[in-house]
């Protein structure tokens, strides 16, 4: 291909992309969700869209601090749901939310291990044994903060092999077999099917994560209200989330 044709093709490709970026219809809603909601948000969307022909929901799933930074930078989100209180409090303080954040679900931590638990991990203290490859989420995402808090409560000190950028990356490392264990949410173990095993963390050491949701624009209210409604709550219970 000549250079000129290559450039022409690149320009044509760009031109084709432009209309896709602009022009959001009134019925398109963008939901920013924490990584640990990766499994359940598509189900909530499906349930919400039932009987709402013509509406559309776009999901943006990432680590909570990334979502917050994007919203602060003006990303076009209509609803935001995170696994902590502080992130939405910060957005609220900056007057970026439409109404106060509401707790819509709770979650607990579990230890994700290889299927069949070949390293016989029974509790948090077992994560400190040498030769075990353990990964957490980085402490800047809620899952990482909770993991650090749980280890603190259990008076266990673990040297992680990696601090992953969100909780789904922790699950992935255990699924791939690169890590022997990781600290994740109970719902992550459930969502992974049989690809990881779950080891419960003693209630005295465990942490309860309060998930909060808030509308950012008036357009986002309907989805927020749906998540809080009995229908939305049913979907969350089915995925293993605890009631608010």
């Amino acid at each position: 291909m000549s250079a000129r044709r290559a450039i022409a093709a690149a320009v044509a490709a760009l031109a084709a992309l432009v209309p896709a970026c602009g022009g959001r219809s009134a019925h398109a809603v963008t939901v920013f969700g924490a990584a640990s909601l990766t499994g359940v948000l598509p189900e909530l969307r499906q349930e919400f869209l039932r009987g709402r022909a013509g509406e559309r929901i776009t999901l943006d799933l990432a680590g909570t601090p990334q979502l917050v930074a994007q919203i602060e930078a003006g990303a076009p989100a209509d609803v935001v749901a995170t696994a902590d209180e502080a992130s939405l409090a910060e957005l609220r303080a900056r007057r970026l939310l439409d109404g106060p954040p509401v707790v819509f679900a709770r979650n607990r931590l579990a230890i994700a291990v290889r299927p069949g638990n070949p390293r016989h991990i029974r509790d948090l203290a077992d994560l400190a044994q040498s030769g075990l490859v353990v990964v957490f989420a980085d402490a800047r995402v809620p899952a990482g903060k909770y993991a650090a808090a749980a280890l603190g409560r259990a008076h266990v000190s673990v040297h992680p092999a990696s601090l992953e950028q969100d909780v789904k990356a922790v699950v992935a490392k255990v699924v791939l077999g690169e890590a022997d264990a990781g600290i994740v949410y109970v719902t992550d173990v459930r969502a992974a099917g049989g690809k990881v095993g779950g080891v419960a963390i003693a209630a005295s050491d465990n942490v309860v994560a309060g998930y909060r949701i808030a509308a950012i624009t008036a357009r986002g209210r309907a989805f927020r209200d749906f998540v809080l409604s009995p229908d939305g709550q049913r979907v969350l219970r089915r995925a293993g989330f605890l009631s608010p």
């Binding site: 601090p65 990334q66 917050v68 930074a69 990964v135 980085d138 800047r140 992680p160 092999a161 990696s162 601090l163 992953e164 950028q165 490392k173």
Partner: peptide, 25 residues
């Protein structure tokens, strides 16, 4: 790097990873 080697300060957290991690905090 972040996919294969992970992210641990001093061991695998190179400058671009540090930029990414520091961006929000």
């Amino acid at each position: 790097t972040i996919t294969f080697a992970g992210n641990l300060p001093g061991r695998t957290q190179t400058m671009p990873l540090a930029v990414y991690v520091a961006l929000e905090s």
